[in-house]
Design a protein around this nucleic acid. Structure first.
Length: 421
RNA sequence: GUGGGUGUAGCUCAGUCGGUCAGAGCGCCAGGUUGUGGCCCUGGAGGCCAUGGGUUCAAGUCCCUUCACCCACCCCA
């Protein structure tokens, strides 16, 4: 156990770590471009926060939280998702007093205690945005637009955007009754899981893939048919806005997100080929959450995407992000005198912005050359008594194998020219 | 929480009906070059064959336990 990482966690090591950096950089760049600013909330919050926002009956709260008691006897929970913490911070820091809407993005680890499988870890990473203080359908469309742009920049294709509305406190309760009335005489056809859902959160029966349940659902009343005029108009407006942005989508009346705080818009992005967990991102509107926490009425909409799943999708398609520009210089020493002179040269190269390294194992020149090659040096500078006697260094271009003598004092300048291209 | 699969060197894997079975390729280190990488040749390091039991004269090789990983269900990112 000493050398084994906890189940469902991963070490991210180069070269994969480079891909992570590229993806994260894209997330930040795009967010800023859309006017979002970063928010860094704690990795753990009071357990109560999640219980009251995500919902007691949700799977996340009922069986997936990493909850612990600290030494002060408080119940804390490692964040299972980002929205609750952002909303808490929005209120605690009185961000509602800032010019609305407040646009925030976050990037970091989330924790959920579930059995790991393809695309599912116990510690995973999300990039998400929250747009608080805007109730217009255009806001929903913007959030979706940012999400789709993120995927597009990464080169992900074959994505499907699924769209639905889950109603609001004005219409959902009534629909819930209608649905319950429909399901009640058909309980015998439902699977065990759905019977539990029927009792706790009937909307989620729509998630079921069991044949029996699907047959029952085929005739079931759909939430979209029972939306109040406001929700109905909102959904239509979101569709219009998406068409205006030329973002393709599919209406999915069966899409019901598992978190209690969603109202109106719910959406999900699906990608094929990454296993059973094909949703790489999702989000929706939560117009009542801020108010439920005692804040001012603040309609809001957000989105989050799982970075592990994004990387999976990238890998599946063999897409690779551009590697960092090669400016790697290795300083090799032919002898002790060269090694001494190389120390100073190495420092100069690094100060000039080069990625530069040398040998620290006292290895032969041959071994140093081999190491330089494996390391990916574009240029190796060779130093020895012969060069020092002439006041030069030998610059070897690793790809072509060509070498030239460059005056010791002008090495940095010469390499800048060589590697400028 | 449930089900299925897997677990031999750093990596990918061979190991036949239990009896030289502890191996290969790649990688790593070194030598072949006296100051020079990529190809080639040679040599070397590295494994309580996941773990703990059991069966047997004898077990990576059969049986069971545990753990881990993978995949699927649940659910979601």
């Amino acid at each position: 156990m000493l050398t084994t990482r906890p189940r469902g966690t991963e070490d991210i090591i180069a070269p994969e770590a480079d891909v992570w950096q590229a993806v994260e950089e894209l997330a930040r760049t795009l967010s800023h471009r859309y006017g979002y600013e970063e928010i860094r909330t704690p990795l753990f919050e009071h357990t109560e926060l999640y219980a009251r926002s995500v919902g007691e009956t949700s799977d996340i709260v009922s069986k997936e939280m990493y909850t612990f008691t600290d030494r002060g006897g408080r119940s804390l929970t490692l964040r299972p998702e980002g929205t609750a913490g952002v909303v808490r911070a929005f209120l605690e820091n009185r961000l509602y007093a800032r010019p609305l809407p407040v646009k925030l993005y976050y990037l970091g680890p989330m924790f959920r205690f579930a059995r790991p499988q393809a695309g599912r870890l116990r510690q995973f990473h999300q990039f998400g945005v929250e747009l608080l203080g805007a109730g217009e359908a255009a806001a929903d469309a913007e959030v979706i637009s940012l999400a789709m742009e993120f995927y597009r920049h990464l080169g992900l294709e074959e994505l499907t955007l699924r769209l639905n509305s889950v109603g609001c406190p004005a219409c959902r309760p009534a629909y819930r009754e209608v649905l319950l009335a429909y399901l009640e005489p058909r309980q015998h056809s439902l699977c065990a899981d759905c019977l539990a859902r029927y009792a706790r959160n009937p909307l989620r029966v729509f998630d079921c893939k069991e044949e029996g349940c699907r047959q029952v659902l085929a005739e079931a009343p759909l939430v979209t048919a029972y939306l109040c005029p406001e929700c109905s108009a909102h959904l239509a407006a979101v569709r219009d806005a998406l068409r205006l942005l030329a973002i393709p989508y599919e209406d999915d009346p069966y899409l019901v997100r598992g978190l209690d705080y969603y109202t109106k818009t719910a959406f999900e992005v699906i990608v094929p080929g990454i296993g059973a967990q094909s949703a790489i991102g999702g989000g929706g509107r939560y117009d009542g959450l801020v108010e439920a926490f005692g804040g001012p009425h603040t309609p809001a909409v957000g989105f989050a995407t799982g970075l592990e799943r994004v990387l999976l999708a990238l890998g599946v398609r063999g897409k690779t992000l551009a590697p960092p520009a090669g400016r790697k210089v290795f300083v090799a020493a032919a002898d002790a005198a060269g090694a001494a002179a190389g120390v100073e040269l190495l420092a100069r190269l690094r100060r000039a912005g080069f990625t530069a390294d040398r040998d620290y194992l006292g290895r032969s020149l041959k071994a140093q050359m081999k190491h330089a090659d494996r390391w990916g040096a574009t240029i190796t500078v060779i130093l020895g008594e012969a060069e020092l006697g002439r006041g030069t260094v030998t610059v070897r271009h690793m790809q072509s194998g060509e070498q030239e003598a460059v005056p010791f004092a002008q090495v940095v300048e010469a390499l800048k020219e060589h590697l400028a291209r």
